[in-house]
Design a protein around this nucleic acid. Structure first.
Lengths: 356, 356
DNA sequence: CTGAAAGCGCTTACAG
DNA sequence: CTGAAAGCGCTTACAG
């Protein structure tokens, strides 16, 4: 039996033969044992056990024209929030007998349509997108997918279909407001490459909008070219902030990783956080509350995003309706104020500025 | 077309009809276009494009008796090393057109056989286990799975099949040796619940063995009851270490998370690391090198474990042989010495002890 | 309560 | 270079 994946695996037919019943009866013994006569059921179950029979779900799906698989498109698991969403998704989906198929990262934008096609070749019952930036060809593929598509971790301006996320612009605005309320005026935004990160850009937009509304200088922005926003990017970035905007009293870091790097670099340079420089992050990573000083950040219910997405998916798959299920869920976020952004002490530096 | 997952999706047959050829010709156009006459090929490709045809891989698998799916059994993605292994696995498997099916965490040990059976129902070409602790029933299921099984992140005493991992006992021994070589004698091991973590136990065993070999007290062990070894567990744990073994000059923490918690708690208490207390972790998390002081730890090539496992799997699937492929790979680890365990200064405390 | 027929979407192996 | 037949492992829908 070379090449056969089914090597050694018992089939419905073999069980039926051993038990001396028809295929249908075995099928029923597996799925609706209660409809069988007890004697029959026992006979069949014994055969199943003896042969170690495990039904082939893919064959079942094909035959019954349904799908027990959900595809998750995720760029990488480098970000712990995304991993937690996957956990949430998985823990909820398994209740409904749905499996998760991973369609990982797009290395290049141009590849994404091809990868989406490949994953659709598995006939998933639905698609969950963790990162929703797609080429126009990718969008086309998704739109003609014929199955529910759920975008997460964002509230896109033009949703493809269902959405479970939060507003990144609001995140940027909320952190900025918090810092301004703490008495800061010279706030610098520390981010990554603007062209490849729509969500980071949204947070930046929230920062700019708020600064402008409050009559402050919204142009204080520093970026680090690294694609992955690592802790190291934060170290480099904060050095640049201190260099280009030495009067900065608070810096909004794109993520907690970046903020941690910034904090460590500050320590090395003898810049005191938050007295000399207040810092905020985004994402509430596990380490954030444990840093000294603990990090002010925004908390997202990452696991909940997964659970929510799973529920919407299940609802839409079973009812197969485009009806008024809550198809757009804003899970919101929470600003977690910690020591890294405590109210400034009334130092001379600040006072001077207030009278500039 | 209610309930049909295939809603709207074109099928081989429809393409064939539109193109005016047989099913086989369409099948060839998809898989071996080069064997077709150019006119035919173009005609078919036009039809494929027009109908937006995407072949159903599951049907193809069924028909050709092969599998393009690999199941990954992973407890949760809470540990970044495991997530990186998944990334490595995925990036390598996709080269061979293999998809990853996630079989997540066993909530209870008793469930594991059932979950393994369920995942085998998808007829995966192979199984990758990230966490290899299984009930005896689970082991039975795996042994009769009929497909390659790869255990990772460990070198079990009784491997089920293939293995890609490293020795946790050696990790424990290496860190202990390092600390002893730095002049430490009063070393305390800080770990988690011993009964649910075989790997942690192995590291502990390595610690004990080494301490004993060097004529030191191997009984200095403190545990925290938490199941998940969080940063917080480290905080609690180090307090306990300081309380129960106040003469400790170095502590081996089960993971980098635990070590980070320990470090933060030390800072809070005014215990200087490494001067008053040296600290080591395990896993080389992203934050570890950025802590102040930077954390001594062991580095594992997590991504590489995934790549390796994928290669073995692919090799075994395609050759379908149990031959002398390297079926047991020890990827080793590296002790990364950083500031948290620098050589002790010749303080009086130590000298006194040396003459105890 | 149980079964024989037809078919899910595709591929293998064989013809021509 | 192209096609008709049989079948992968299962389920649906219909009989009895």
């Amino acid at each position: 039996m070379p090449k056969s994946t089914n090597a050694g695996r018992a089939t419905l037919k073999e069980v039926a033969e051993l038990a001396g019943v028809s295929l249908m009866t075995v099928s029923r013994a597996v799925r609706h044992p209660e409809v069988l006569a007890e004697t029959t059921r026992k006979k069949v179950q014994a055969a199943i056990k003896k042969l170690n029979y495990i039904p082939d779900d893919a064959a079942g799906d094909l035959s019954s024209r349904k799908s027990t698989t959900v595809a998750v498109v995720i760029p990488s698991l480098h970000f712990e929030g995304h991993a937690r969403t996957l956990d949430g998704l998985s823990s909820e989906l398994r209740k409904h007998g749905l499996y998760i198929l991973i369609a990982d990262s797009f290395y290049s934008r141009s590849e994404d349509a091809e990868l989406l096609r490949r994953i659709l070749g598995r006939r998933p019952a639905g698609l969950v997108l963790i990162n929703s930036a797609h080429s126009s060809e990718g969008v086309e593929v998704l739109q003609s997918a014929g199955v529910p598509v759920i975008e997460t971790w964002d509230i896109p301006a033009n949703p493809l279909d269902s959405v479970v996320g939060f507003s990144h612009a609001e995140v940027g605005a909320a952190l900025t407001t918090h810092l301004i309320d703490q008495g800061h005026e010279y706030i610098t935004f520390l981010g990554g490459p603007l062209d490849t990160d729509p969500r980071g850009n949204e947070r930046l937009a929230g920062f700019k909008r708020t600064m402008t509304e409050r009559g402050l200088d919204a142009s204080r922005v520093v970026t680090v070219e690294q694609d992955h926003l690592t802790i190291n990017a934060g170290k480099i970035g904060i050095a640049r902030v201190l260099d280009r905007f030495p009067d900065t009293t608070a810096s909004i870091c794109l993520t907690d990783r970046v903020a941690m790097g910034a904090m460590m670099e500050c320590r090395r340079r003898g810049v005191s956080v938050p007295d000399d420089l207040a810092l905020t992050g985004h994402g509430d990573f596990e380490f954030s509350e444990h840093l000294v000083p603990s990090l002010t950040t925004t908390r997202i219910d990452a696991f909940g995003i997964g659970v929510h997405a799973a529920r919407i998916l299940h609802e839409r798959i079973t009812t197969n309706s485009m009806n008024d299920t809550e198809r757009h869920v804003d899970v919101g976020f929470e600003v977690v104020v910690r020591d890294s952004s405590q109210a400034m002490r009334p130092s001379t530096r600040v006072k001077q500025r207030l009278h500039d």
